[in-house]
Design a protein around this nucleic acid. Sequence first.
DNA 1: AAAATGTTTTGAACGTGTTCAAAATATGTA
DNA 2: TACATATTTTGAACACGTTCAAAACATTTT
Lengths: 278, 278
Amino acid sequence: MSSPKSESPKLNKGQQTKALILETALELFRERGYEQTTMRDIAEKANVALGNTYYYFRSKEHLIQGFYQRTQEELLVASTPILEKERSLKARLLGVMKARFELIEPYHQFAGVLFRTAGDPKSPLNPFSAESLELRKQNTAIFEQVLQGARLRIAIPKDLYAELPNLLWIYQMGVILFWIHDKSPNRIRTHQLIEHTVDITAKLIAIASVPLMKPLIKKTLNLLATFREDLNNLLPSSNPDLELDELDELDELDELDELDELDELGKSLKVTKPLKTE
Amino acid sequence: MSSPKSESPKLNKGQQTKALILETALELFRERGYEQTTMRDIAEKANVALGNTYYYFRSKEHLIQGFYQRTQEELLVASTPILEKERSLKARLLGVMKARFELIEPYHQFAGVLFRTAGDPKSPLNPFSAESLELRKQNTAIFEQVLQGARLRIAIPKDLYAELPNLLWIYQMGVILFWIHDKSPNRIRTHQLIEHTVDITAKLIAIASVPLMKPLIKKTLNLLATFREDLNNLLPSSNPDLELDELDELDELDELDELDELDELGKSLKVTKPLKTE
DNA sequence: AAAATGTTTTGAACGTGTTCAAAATATGTA
DNA sequence: TACATATTTTGAACACGTTCAAAACATTTT
Protein backbone atom coordinates (compact mmCIF):
# COMPACT_ATOMS: atom_id res chain seq x y z
CA MET A 1 0.00 0.00 0.00
CA SER A 2 2.66 2.47 -1.02
CA SER A 3 1.50 5.71 -2.60
CA PRO A 4 0.50 5.41 -6.25
CA LYS A 5 -1.84 8.36 -5.89
CA SER A 6 -0.12 11.40 -4.46
CA GLU A 7 3.17 12.62 -5.88
CA SER A 8 5.44 13.49 -2.99
CA PRO A 9 3.85 12.33 0.22
CA LYS A 10 6.22 14.35 2.33
CA LEU A 11 5.15 17.72 1.11
CA ASN A 12 1.62 16.69 0.51
CA LYS A 13 -0.33 15.84 3.59
CA GLY A 14 0.13 19.24 5.09
CA GLN A 15 -0.33 21.18 1.89
CA GLN A 16 -3.54 19.29 1.26
CA THR A 17 -5.00 20.23 4.59
CA LYS A 18 -3.91 23.80 4.13
CA ALA A 19 -5.58 24.00 0.74
CA LEU A 20 -8.71 22.39 2.12
CA ILE A 21 -8.94 24.94 4.90
CA LEU A 22 -8.38 27.88 2.56
CA GLU A 23 -10.90 26.52 0.09
CA THR A 24 -13.51 26.06 2.79
CA ALA A 25 -12.83 29.49 4.22
CA LEU A 26 -13.17 31.31 0.91
CA GLU A 27 -16.35 29.39 0.22
CA LEU A 28 -17.86 30.51 3.49
CA PHE A 29 -16.58 34.06 3.03
CA ARG A 30 -18.31 34.24 -0.32
CA GLU A 31 -21.51 32.79 1.10
CA ARG A 32 -21.93 34.80 4.24
CA GLY A 33 -19.11 37.32 4.39
CA TYR A 34 -16.02 37.59 6.51
CA GLU A 35 -17.30 38.61 9.93
CA GLN A 36 -20.20 36.19 9.75
CA THR A 37 -17.82 33.32 9.26
CA THR A 38 -16.21 32.06 12.45
CA MET A 39 -13.05 30.07 12.67
CA ARG A 40 -15.15 27.35 14.26
CA ASP A 41 -17.40 27.32 11.19
CA ILE A 42 -14.43 26.88 8.94
CA ALA A 43 -12.90 24.15 11.07
CA GLU A 44 -16.18 22.29 11.32
CA LYS A 45 -16.97 22.43 7.62
CA ALA A 46 -13.43 21.38 6.74
CA ASN A 47 -13.61 18.57 9.30
CA VAL A 48 -10.57 19.59 11.23
CA ALA A 49 -10.08 20.75 14.77
CA LEU A 50 -10.23 24.44 15.51
CA GLY A 51 -6.61 24.58 16.49
CA ASN A 52 -5.56 23.03 13.23
CA THR A 53 -6.56 26.04 11.22
CA TYR A 54 -4.10 28.01 13.28
CA TYR A 55 -1.36 25.60 12.45
CA TYR A 56 -1.62 26.63 8.81
CA PHE A 57 -2.86 30.21 9.03
CA ARG A 58 -1.46 32.41 11.71
CA SER A 59 -4.72 34.29 12.05
CA LYS A 60 -8.10 34.73 10.47
CA GLU A 61 -6.73 37.67 8.53
CA HIS A 62 -4.00 35.55 7.08
CA LEU A 63 -6.68 33.59 5.28
CA ILE A 64 -7.27 36.68 3.21
CA GLN A 65 -3.76 36.63 1.86
CA GLY A 66 -4.75 33.36 0.31
CA PHE A 67 -7.52 35.20 -1.46
CA TYR A 68 -5.13 37.87 -2.69
CA GLN A 69 -2.76 35.28 -4.04
CA ARG A 70 -5.54 33.46 -5.78
CA THR A 71 -7.05 36.40 -7.64
CA GLN A 72 -3.62 37.74 -8.49
CA GLU A 73 -2.84 34.57 -10.37
CA GLU A 74 -6.21 34.63 -12.06
CA LEU A 75 -5.66 38.21 -13.14
CA LEU A 76 -2.40 37.31 -14.81
CA VAL A 77 -4.20 34.72 -16.88
CA ALA A 78 -7.12 36.96 -17.72
CA SER A 79 -4.89 39.85 -18.78
CA THR A 80 -2.80 37.98 -21.30
CA PRO A 81 -5.24 38.09 -24.25
CA ILE A 82 -5.98 41.76 -23.62
CA LEU A 83 -2.35 42.75 -23.54
CA GLU A 84 -1.69 40.76 -26.67
CA LYS A 85 -4.50 42.40 -28.55
CA GLU A 86 -4.68 46.04 -27.48
CA ARG A 87 -2.01 48.57 -28.31
CA SER A 88 -3.29 51.91 -26.99
CA LEU A 89 -2.45 52.70 -23.40
CA LYS A 90 -6.04 53.54 -22.67
CA ALA A 91 -7.40 50.26 -23.98
CA ARG A 92 -4.74 48.22 -22.25
CA LEU A 93 -5.30 49.86 -18.91
CA LEU A 94 -9.05 49.65 -19.31
CA GLY A 95 -8.86 45.98 -20.15
CA VAL A 96 -6.76 45.08 -17.16
CA MET A 97 -8.84 47.13 -14.77
CA LYS A 98 -12.05 45.57 -16.00
CA ALA A 99 -10.60 42.11 -15.72
CA ARG A 100 -9.52 42.73 -12.16
CA PHE A 101 -12.93 43.86 -11.02
CA GLU A 102 -14.73 41.05 -12.74
CA LEU A 103 -12.50 38.68 -10.83
CA ILE A 104 -13.12 40.09 -7.42
CA GLU A 105 -16.81 40.73 -7.91
CA PRO A 106 -17.94 37.49 -6.19
CA TYR A 107 -16.13 38.60 -3.08
CA HIS A 108 -17.71 42.01 -2.90
CA GLN A 109 -19.62 41.49 0.29
CA PHE A 110 -16.55 40.62 2.28
CA ALA A 111 -14.33 43.14 0.61
CA GLY A 112 -14.48 45.50 3.55
CA VAL A 113 -11.72 43.67 5.35
CA LEU A 114 -9.43 44.07 2.40
CA PHE A 115 -9.22 47.74 3.12
CA ARG A 116 -10.00 47.70 6.78
CA THR A 117 -6.49 46.77 7.70
CA ALA A 118 -4.83 48.59 4.86
CA GLY A 119 -3.76 51.44 7.05
CA ASP A 120 -2.71 49.54 10.12
CA PRO A 121 1.06 49.31 10.35
CA LYS A 122 0.75 46.22 12.51
CA SER A 123 -1.46 44.28 10.18
CA PRO A 124 0.01 41.71 7.82
CA LEU A 125 -2.62 42.73 5.30
CA ASN A 126 -1.33 46.24 5.14
CA PRO A 127 -0.17 46.54 1.54
CA PHE A 128 3.11 48.10 2.66
CA SER A 129 3.99 45.28 5.00
CA ALA A 130 6.90 42.98 4.31
CA GLU A 131 4.49 40.08 4.11
CA SER A 132 2.62 41.56 1.17
CA LEU A 133 5.68 42.83 -0.64
CA GLU A 134 5.76 39.92 -3.02
CA LEU A 135 2.13 40.33 -3.89
CA ARG A 136 2.49 44.04 -4.44
CA LYS A 137 5.37 43.37 -6.80
CA GLN A 138 3.30 40.98 -8.88
CA ASN A 139 0.58 43.54 -8.89
CA THR A 140 2.65 46.40 -10.21
CA ALA A 141 4.27 44.03 -12.67
CA ILE A 142 0.99 43.86 -14.53
CA PHE A 143 0.95 47.61 -14.89
CA GLU A 144 4.49 47.44 -16.18
CA GLN A 145 3.24 45.17 -18.91
CA VAL A 146 0.41 47.56 -19.64
CA LEU A 147 2.96 50.29 -20.25
CA GLN A 148 5.56 48.22 -22.03
CA GLY A 149 3.39 47.10 -24.88
CA ALA A 150 1.65 50.42 -25.38
CA ARG A 151 2.16 52.48 -28.50
CA LEU A 152 2.44 56.08 -27.33
CA ARG A 153 2.14 59.34 -29.17
CA ILE A 154 4.42 61.19 -26.78
CA ALA A 155 7.35 59.40 -25.23
CA ILE A 156 7.06 59.14 -21.48
CA PRO A 157 10.20 60.42 -19.73
CA LYS A 158 12.27 57.62 -18.30
CA ASP A 159 11.97 58.62 -14.68
CA LEU A 160 8.21 58.95 -14.85
CA TYR A 161 7.96 55.71 -16.78
CA ALA A 162 9.78 53.89 -14.03
CA GLU A 163 7.44 55.16 -11.36
CA LEU A 164 4.19 54.83 -13.27
CA PRO A 165 3.46 51.22 -12.34
CA ASN A 166 3.44 52.23 -8.70
CA LEU A 167 1.25 55.21 -9.39
CA LEU A 168 -1.16 53.04 -11.31
CA TRP A 169 -1.20 50.64 -8.41
CA ILE A 170 -2.27 53.47 -6.14
CA TYR A 171 -4.89 54.45 -8.65
CA GLN A 172 -6.15 50.90 -8.59
CA MET A 173 -6.37 50.95 -4.82
CA GLY A 174 -8.48 54.06 -5.04
CA VAL A 175 -10.90 52.38 -7.39
CA ILE A 176 -11.07 49.37 -5.11
CA LEU A 177 -12.00 51.70 -2.28
CA PHE A 178 -14.84 53.02 -4.39
CA TRP A 179 -15.91 49.54 -5.41
CA ILE A 180 -16.15 48.46 -1.81
CA HIS A 181 -18.58 51.24 -1.10
CA ASP A 182 -20.43 50.84 -4.36
CA LYS A 183 -24.00 49.76 -3.78
CA SER A 184 -25.27 50.18 -7.34
CA PRO A 185 -26.72 47.11 -9.06
CA ASN A 186 -24.01 45.00 -10.65
CA ARG A 187 -21.55 47.62 -9.55
CA ILE A 188 -22.28 49.65 -12.67
CA ARG A 189 -20.96 52.78 -11.04
CA THR A 190 -17.57 51.27 -10.52
CA HIS A 191 -17.41 50.27 -14.14
CA GLN A 192 -18.37 53.75 -15.21
CA LEU A 193 -15.81 55.16 -12.86
CA ILE A 194 -13.16 52.95 -14.39
CA GLU A 195 -14.02 53.95 -17.91
CA HIS A 196 -13.80 57.63 -17.14
CA THR A 197 -10.79 57.58 -14.88
CA VAL A 198 -8.81 55.41 -17.25
CA ASP A 199 -9.38 58.07 -19.83
CA ILE A 200 -8.33 60.85 -17.48
CA THR A 201 -5.33 58.88 -16.39
CA ALA A 202 -4.15 58.41 -19.94
CA LYS A 203 -4.49 62.12 -20.52
CA LEU A 204 -2.64 63.01 -17.36
CA ILE A 205 0.21 60.78 -18.39
CA ALA A 206 0.37 62.58 -21.69
CA ILE A 207 0.35 65.97 -20.03
CA ALA A 208 2.98 64.93 -17.54
CA SER A 209 5.16 63.84 -20.44
CA VAL A 210 5.31 67.31 -21.91
CA PRO A 211 8.98 68.35 -21.61
CA LEU A 212 8.44 71.47 -19.60
CA MET A 213 6.43 69.70 -16.94
CA LYS A 214 9.76 68.17 -16.13
CA PRO A 215 10.76 70.18 -13.03
CA LEU A 216 7.49 69.53 -11.23
CA ILE A 217 7.43 65.90 -12.25
CA LYS A 218 11.01 65.43 -11.18
CA LYS A 219 10.38 66.94 -7.82
CA THR A 220 7.32 64.81 -7.32
CA LEU A 221 9.13 61.66 -8.36
CA ASN A 222 12.00 62.34 -6.01
CA LEU A 223 9.54 62.77 -3.24
CA LEU A 224 7.84 59.53 -4.10
CA ALA A 225 11.14 57.74 -4.12
CA THR A 226 11.94 58.67 -0.54
CA PHE A 227 8.34 58.01 0.42
CA ARG A 228 8.56 54.49 -0.87
CA GLU A 229 11.92 53.92 0.75
CA ASP A 230 10.42 54.74 4.09
CA LEU A 231 7.66 52.27 3.60
CA ASN A 232 9.77 49.52 2.14
CA ASN A 233 12.70 49.63 4.47
CA LEU A 234 10.61 50.07 7.55
CA LEU A 235 13.75 51.01 9.35
CA PRO A 236 12.85 52.32 12.78
CA SER A 237 15.27 55.21 12.33
CA SER A 238 17.61 55.80 9.44
CA ASN A 239 19.34 59.07 8.62
CA PRO A 240 16.04 60.73 8.05
CA ASP A 241 17.40 63.87 6.41
CA LEU A 242 19.72 62.57 3.78
CA GLU A 243 17.67 61.89 0.71
CA LEU A 244 15.57 64.97 0.88
CA ASP A 245 18.54 67.27 0.66
CA GLU A 246 18.65 66.70 -3.05
CA LEU A 247 15.07 67.66 -3.24
CA ASP A 248 15.78 70.98 -1.67
CA GLU A 249 18.05 71.91 -4.50
CA LEU A 250 15.11 71.73 -6.78
CA ASP A 251 13.26 73.88 -4.39
CA GLU A 252 15.47 76.91 -4.53
CA LEU A 253 12.91 79.07 -6.18
CA ASP A 254 11.51 82.20 -4.68
CA GLU A 255 7.94 83.15 -4.05
CA LEU A 256 7.31 83.53 -7.74
CA ASP A 257 7.93 79.97 -8.71
CA GLU A 258 4.34 79.12 -9.47
CA LEU A 259 4.07 81.53 -12.32
CA ASP A 260 7.56 80.85 -13.49
CA GLU A 261 6.82 77.23 -14.02
CA LEU A 262 3.63 78.00 -15.81
CA ASP A 263 5.56 80.20 -18.14
CA GLU A 264 7.98 77.43 -18.83
CA LEU A 265 5.11 75.14 -19.53
CA GLY A 266 3.80 77.63 -22.03
CA LYS A 267 7.16 77.96 -23.70
CA SER A 268 7.45 74.26 -24.05
CA LEU A 269 4.07 73.80 -25.52
CA LYS A 270 4.58 76.36 -28.22
CA VAL A 271 6.65 73.89 -30.15
CA THR A 272 4.04 71.16 -30.29
CA LYS A 273 2.00 70.43 -33.36
CA PRO A 274 -0.09 73.05 -35.13
CA LEU A 275 -3.55 73.34 -33.67
CA LYS A 276 -6.72 72.52 -35.38
CA THR A 277 -9.15 75.40 -35.39
CA GLU A 278 -11.66 75.24 -32.67
CA MET B 1 -28.01 69.85 49.48
CA SER B 2 -29.31 71.06 46.15
CA SER B 3 -26.77 71.54 43.39
CA PRO B 4 -24.71 74.68 43.66
CA LYS B 5 -21.92 73.05 41.78
CA SER B 6 -23.16 71.58 38.52
CA GLU B 7 -25.24 73.66 36.15
CA SER B 8 -28.14 71.58 34.90
CA PRO B 9 -28.40 68.38 36.87
CA LYS B 10 -30.76 66.79 34.39
CA LEU B 11 -28.37 66.78 31.50
CA ASN B 12 -25.40 66.40 33.67
CA LYS B 13 -25.12 63.13 35.44
CA GLY B 14 -25.06 61.16 32.26
CA GLN B 15 -22.86 63.56 30.34
CA GLN B 16 -20.42 63.58 33.20
CA THR B 17 -20.04 59.83 33.19
CA LYS B 18 -19.72 59.84 29.43
CA ALA B 19 -16.97 62.44 29.55
CA LEU B 20 -15.22 60.54 32.31
CA ILE B 21 -15.22 57.35 30.31
CA LEU B 22 -13.93 59.07 27.18
CA GLU B 23 -11.25 60.88 29.15
CA THR B 24 -10.08 57.68 30.77
CA ALA B 25 -10.13 55.83 27.49
CA LEU B 26 -8.05 58.41 25.63
CA GLU B 27 -5.61 58.49 28.50
CA LEU B 28 -5.11 54.76 28.32
CA PHE B 29 -4.95 54.80 24.53
CA ARG B 30 -2.16 57.35 24.69
CA GLU B 31 -0.31 55.37 27.33
CA ARG B 32 -0.45 51.89 25.93
CA GLY B 33 -2.19 52.07 22.57
CA TYR B 34 -5.58 51.00 21.37
CA GLU B 35 -5.39 47.20 21.23
CA GLN B 36 -3.54 47.00 24.51
CA THR B 37 -6.34 48.81 26.27
CA THR B 38 -9.29 46.60 27.13
CA MET B 39 -12.78 47.81 27.82
CA ARG B 40 -12.35 46.29 31.27
CA ASP B 41 -9.28 48.44 31.83
CA ILE B 42 -11.22 51.54 30.93
CA ALA B 43 -14.18 50.62 33.10
CA GLU B 44 -11.98 49.79 36.05
CA LYS B 45 -9.91 52.95 35.85
CA ALA B 46 -13.04 55.06 35.45
CA ASN B 47 -14.68 53.24 38.34
CA VAL B 48 -17.73 52.15 36.45
CA ALA B 49 -19.05 48.76 35.54
CA LEU B 50 -18.01 47.22 32.25
CA GLY B 51 -21.50 47.38 30.86
CA ASN B 52 -21.76 51.05 31.60
CA THR B 53 -19.21 51.96 29.00
CA TYR B 54 -21.49 50.36 26.43
CA TYR B 55 -24.37 52.48 27.59
CA TYR B 56 -22.50 55.57 26.41
CA PHE B 57 -20.37 54.22 23.58
CA ARG B 58 -21.87 51.69 21.27
CA SER B 59 -18.54 49.99 20.75
CA LYS B 60 -14.87 50.33 21.44
CA GLU B 61 -14.45 51.93 18.05
CA HIS B 62 -16.99 54.56 18.89
CA LEU B 63 -14.62 55.85 21.52
CA ILE B 64 -12.39 56.93 18.70
CA GLN B 65 -14.99 59.26 17.34
CA GLY B 66 -14.58 61.12 20.58
CA PHE B 67 -10.94 61.49 19.75
CA TYR B 68 -11.75 62.83 16.29
CA GLN B 69 -14.15 65.36 17.72
CA ARG B 70 -11.63 66.49 20.26
CA THR B 71 -8.72 67.13 17.93
CA GLN B 72 -11.00 68.69 15.37
CA GLU B 73 -12.00 71.36 17.85
CA GLU B 74 -8.42 71.87 18.88
CA LEU B 75 -7.37 72.28 15.26
CA LEU B 76 -9.91 75.02 14.76
CA VAL B 77 -8.38 76.93 17.62
CA ALA B 78 -4.81 76.33 16.56
CA SER B 79 -5.48 77.40 12.97
CA THR B 80 -6.98 80.78 13.71
CA PRO B 81 -3.74 82.73 14.24
CA ILE B 82 -2.18 81.15 11.17
CA LEU B 83 -5.09 82.00 8.93
CA GLU B 84 -5.14 85.52 10.26
CA LYS B 85 -1.48 86.04 9.59
CA GLU B 86 -0.59 84.21 6.39
CA ARG B 87 -1.85 85.30 3.00
CA SER B 88 -0.17 82.96 0.48
CA LEU B 89 -1.97 79.73 -0.24
CA LYS B 90 1.18 77.77 0.35
CA ALA B 91 1.85 79.25 3.77
CA ARG B 92 -1.77 78.90 4.87
CA LEU B 93 -1.99 75.28 3.82
CA LEU B 94 1.38 74.53 5.35
CA GLY B 95 0.41 76.15 8.62
CA VAL B 96 -2.83 74.22 8.95
CA MET B 97 -1.24 70.93 8.02
CA LYS B 98 1.56 71.38 10.52
CA ALA B 99 -0.90 72.32 13.23
CA ARG B 100 -2.94 69.22 12.57
CA PHE B 101 -0.02 66.87 12.87
CA GLU B 102 1.33 68.49 15.97
CA LEU B 103 -2.06 67.92 17.53
CA ILE B 104 -2.34 64.26 16.75
CA GLU B 105 1.30 63.45 17.45
CA PRO B 106 0.67 62.18 21.02
CA TYR B 107 -1.73 59.62 19.61
CA HIS B 108 0.67 58.25 17.04
CA GLN B 109 1.01 54.82 18.51
CA PHE B 110 -2.68 54.07 18.37
CA ALA B 111 -3.25 55.79 15.08
CA GLY B 112 -3.42 52.53 13.23
CA VAL B 113 -7.07 52.09 14.08
CA LEU B 114 -7.89 55.44 12.60
CA PHE B 115 -7.21 54.08 9.19
CA ARG B 116 -7.88 50.46 9.84
CA THR B 117 -11.57 50.89 9.49
CA ALA B 118 -11.44 53.67 6.94
CA GLY B 119 -12.29 51.34 4.11
CA ASP B 120 -14.91 49.22 5.79
CA PRO B 121 -18.39 50.22 4.62
CA LYS B 122 -19.86 48.78 7.79
CA SER B 123 -17.65 50.67 10.19
CA PRO B 124 -18.90 53.86 11.82
CA LEU B 125 -15.35 55.18 11.61
CA ASN B 126 -15.34 54.97 7.87
CA PRO B 127 -14.97 58.61 6.84
CA PHE B 128 -17.77 58.24 4.30
CA SER B 129 -20.27 56.95 6.81
CA ALA B 130 -23.29 58.98 7.82
CA GLU B 131 -22.00 59.01 11.35
CA SER B 132 -18.82 60.85 10.42
CA LEU B 133 -20.46 63.21 7.95
CA GLU B 134 -20.56 66.07 10.42
CA LEU B 135 -16.92 65.67 11.26
CA ARG B 136 -15.89 65.51 7.65
CA LYS B 137 -17.77 68.73 7.02
CA GLN B 138 -15.94 70.51 9.80
CA ASN B 139 -12.75 69.16 8.43
CA THR B 140 -13.20 70.41 4.90
CA ALA B 141 -14.46 73.70 6.29
CA ILE B 142 -10.95 74.43 7.49
CA PHE B 143 -9.62 73.96 3.99
CA GLU B 144 -12.32 76.29 2.76
CA GLN B 145 -10.93 78.92 5.06
CA VAL B 146 -7.44 78.21 3.82
CA LEU B 147 -8.60 79.00 0.30
CA GLN B 148 -10.88 81.89 1.10
CA GLY B 149 -8.28 84.10 2.69
CA ALA B 150 -5.55 83.31 0.21
CA ARG B 151 -4.22 85.93 -2.18
CA LEU B 152 -3.79 84.19 -5.50
CA ARG B 153 -1.86 85.12 -8.59
CA ILE B 154 -4.12 83.22 -10.92
CA ALA B 155 -7.82 83.05 -10.18
CA ILE B 156 -9.02 79.55 -9.51
CA PRO B 157 -12.02 78.64 -11.68
CA LYS B 158 -15.23 78.54 -9.71
CA ASP B 159 -15.97 74.88 -10.21
CA LEU B 160 -12.51 73.80 -9.16
CA TYR B 161 -12.57 76.19 -6.24
CA ALA B 162 -15.74 74.59 -4.97
CA GLU B 163 -14.27 71.12 -5.05
CA LEU B 164 -10.82 71.95 -3.73
CA PRO B 165 -11.63 71.62 -0.04
CA ASN B 166 -12.63 68.03 -0.66
CA LEU B 167 -9.52 67.37 -2.67
CA LEU B 168 -7.39 68.86 0.04
CA TRP B 169 -9.16 66.66 2.54
CA ILE B 170 -8.18 63.61 0.50
CA TYR B 171 -4.64 64.94 0.33
CA GLN B 172 -4.66 65.24 4.09
CA MET B 173 -5.84 61.66 4.45
CA GLY B 174 -2.94 60.56 2.32
CA VAL B 175 -0.48 62.33 4.55
CA ILE B 176 -2.09 60.80 7.61
CA LEU B 177 -1.60 57.40 6.04
CA PHE B 178 2.10 58.19 5.66
CA TRP B 179 2.31 59.54 9.18
CA ILE B 180 0.87 56.35 10.60
CA HIS B 181 3.62 54.35 8.98
CA ASP B 182 6.31 56.90 9.73
CA LYS B 183 8.90 55.45 12.08
CA SER B 184 11.43 58.27 11.84
CA PRO B 185 12.37 60.06 15.07
CA ASN B 186 9.93 62.81 15.88
CA ARG B 187 8.17 62.02 12.64
CA ILE B 188 10.58 64.25 10.76
CA ARG B 189 9.82 62.49 7.54
CA THR B 190 6.19 63.39 7.74
CA HIS B 191 7.05 67.01 8.29
CA GLN B 192 9.36 66.95 5.32
CA LEU B 193 6.69 65.29 3.28
CA ILE B 194 4.23 68.00 4.23
CA GLU B 195 6.59 70.79 3.29
CA HIS B 196 7.27 69.36 -0.11
CA THR B 197 3.77 68.22 -0.97
CA VAL B 198 2.22 71.47 0.12
CA ASP B 199 4.49 73.14 -2.37
CA ILE B 200 3.58 70.70 -5.11
CA THR B 201 -0.07 71.03 -4.30
CA ALA B 202 0.03 74.81 -4.60
CA LYS B 203 1.71 74.44 -7.97
CA LEU B 204 -0.79 71.90 -9.18
CA ILE B 205 -3.62 74.22 -8.25
CA ALA B 206 -1.98 76.96 -10.27
CA ILE B 207 -1.54 74.69 -13.26
CA ALA B 208 -5.07 73.41 -13.02
CA SER B 209 -6.26 77.01 -13.07
CA VAL B 210 -4.79 77.67 -16.48
CA PRO B 211 -7.81 78.31 -18.74
CA LEU B 212 -7.11 75.62 -21.25
CA MET B 213 -6.86 72.93 -18.65
CA LYS B 214 -10.57 73.53 -18.38
CA PRO B 215 -11.93 70.54 -20.32
CA LEU B 216 -9.92 68.01 -18.38
CA ILE B 217 -10.62 69.69 -15.06
CA LYS B 218 -14.29 69.91 -15.83
CA LYS B 219 -14.49 66.28 -16.71
CA THR B 220 -12.64 65.32 -13.58
CA LEU B 221 -14.83 67.49 -11.42
CA ASN B 222 -18.00 66.07 -12.89
CA LEU B 223 -16.73 62.64 -12.15
CA LEU B 224 -15.92 63.59 -8.60
CA ALA B 225 -19.38 65.01 -8.15
CA THR B 226 -21.09 61.75 -9.00
CA PHE B 227 -18.51 59.87 -7.01
CA ARG B 228 -19.29 61.86 -3.92
CA GLU B 229 -23.01 61.54 -4.48
CA ASP B 230 -22.67 57.80 -4.41
CA LEU B 231 -20.84 57.91 -1.17
CA ASN B 232 -23.03 60.51 0.48
CA ASN B 233 -26.42 59.25 -0.49
CA LEU B 234 -25.59 55.63 0.09
CA LEU B 235 -28.71 54.73 -1.80
CA PRO B 236 -28.76 51.00 -2.38
CA SER B 237 -29.82 51.59 -5.99
CA SER B 238 -30.58 54.90 -7.60
CA ASN B 239 -30.76 55.51 -11.34
CA PRO B 240 -27.15 54.65 -11.72
CA ASP B 241 -26.83 55.92 -15.28
CA LEU B 242 -28.26 59.38 -15.14
CA GLU B 243 -25.55 61.70 -14.02
CA LEU B 244 -22.79 60.24 -16.08
CA ASP B 245 -24.61 60.91 -19.32
CA GLU B 246 -23.55 64.51 -19.13
CA LEU B 247 -20.02 63.39 -18.72
CA ASP B 248 -20.18 61.45 -21.92
CA GLU B 249 -20.85 64.62 -23.85
CA LEU B 250 -17.48 65.85 -22.78
CA ASP B 251 -16.09 62.59 -23.89
CA GLU B 252 -17.05 62.78 -27.52
CA LEU B 253 -13.55 63.01 -28.77
CA ASP B 254 -11.92 60.49 -31.01
CA GLU B 255 -8.77 58.55 -30.54
CA LEU B 256 -6.71 61.66 -30.98
CA ASP B 257 -7.98 63.52 -27.99
CA GLU B 258 -4.83 63.28 -25.97
CA LEU B 259 -2.81 65.33 -28.36
CA ASP B 260 -5.65 67.64 -29.11
CA GLU B 261 -5.92 68.68 -25.52
CA LEU B 262 -2.23 69.14 -25.24
CA ASP B 263 -2.36 71.42 -28.21
CA GLU B 264 -5.07 73.42 -26.61
CA LEU B 265 -3.04 73.66 -23.49
CA GLY B 266 -0.15 75.00 -25.53
CA LYS B 267 -2.34 77.52 -27.27
CA SER B 268 -3.61 78.77 -23.99
CA LEU B 269 -0.26 79.12 -22.44
CA LYS B 270 1.12 81.22 -25.24
CA VAL B 271 -0.65 84.22 -23.85
CA THR B 272 0.91 84.08 -20.41
CA LYS B 273 3.67 86.36 -19.26
CA PRO B 274 7.02 86.69 -21.04
CA LEU B 275 9.54 84.11 -19.94
CA LYS B 276 12.68 84.73 -18.11
CA THR B 277 15.69 83.28 -19.89
CA GLU B 278 16.80 79.96 -18.60
C1' DA C 1 11.24 -4.02 14.62
C1' DA C 2 12.05 -0.61 18.03
C1' DA C 3 13.33 3.76 19.26
C1' DA C 4 13.99 8.56 18.20
C1' DT C 5 12.69 12.41 15.96
C1' DG C 6 9.66 15.32 13.25
C1' DT C 7 5.04 16.74 11.71
C1' DT C 8 0.22 17.28 12.22
C1' DT C 9 -4.00 17.33 14.90
C1' DT C 10 -6.64 17.87 18.90
C1' DG C 11 -9.65 20.29 22.20
C1' DA C 12 -9.70 22.59 26.49
C1' DA C 13 -8.81 27.10 28.26
C1' DC C 14 -8.11 32.10 28.07
C1' DG C 15 -8.88 37.01 26.96
C1' DT C 16 -11.65 40.36 25.24
C1' DG C 17 -15.63 42.75 22.89
C1' DT C 18 -20.38 42.74 23.44
C1' DT C 19 -25.28 41.79 25.18
C1' DC C 20 -28.94 41.84 28.38
C1' DA C 21 -32.07 41.34 32.15
C1' DA C 22 -32.32 43.00 36.46
C1' DA C 23 -31.06 46.34 40.18
C1' DA C 24 -30.18 50.99 41.70
C1' DT C 25 -30.92 55.61 41.31
C1' DA C 26 -32.93 59.89 39.70
C1' DT C 27 -36.88 62.52 38.12
C1' DG C 28 -41.67 63.57 37.61
C1' DT C 29 -46.45 63.34 39.45
C1' DA C 30 -50.39 62.70 42.80
C1' DT D 1 -44.41 62.03 51.04
C1' DA D 2 -45.52 58.01 48.23
C1' DC D 3 -45.92 56.18 43.90
C1' DA D 4 -44.81 55.81 38.85
C1' DT D 5 -41.74 56.29 35.29
C1' DA D 6 -37.35 57.21 33.12
C1' DT D 7 -32.48 56.98 33.34
C1' DT D 8 -28.33 54.97 34.71
C1' DT D 9 -25.52 51.21 36.47
C1' DT D 10 -24.45 46.57 37.32
C1' DG D 11 -22.21 42.08 36.50
C1' DA D 12 -23.01 37.60 34.81
C1' DA D 13 -23.09 35.25 30.45
C1' DC D 14 -21.96 34.65 25.60
C1' DA D 15 -19.35 34.44 21.24
C1' DC D 16 -15.39 34.29 18.93
C1' DG D 17 -10.24 34.78 17.95
C1' DT D 18 -6.31 32.82 19.71
C1' DT D 19 -2.87 29.87 22.48
C1' DC D 20 -0.81 25.77 24.04
C1' DA D 21 0.38 21.40 26.01
C1' DA D 22 -0.44 17.01 24.96
C1' DA D 23 -1.87 13.25 21.77
C1' DA D 24 -1.76 11.05 17.29
C1' DC D 25 0.51 10.11 13.34
C1' DA D 26 4.54 9.91 10.00
C1' DT D 27 9.33 9.46 8.93
C1' DT D 28 14.08 8.46 9.85
C1' DT D 29 17.68 6.15 12.40
C1' DT D 30 19.67 2.27 14.81
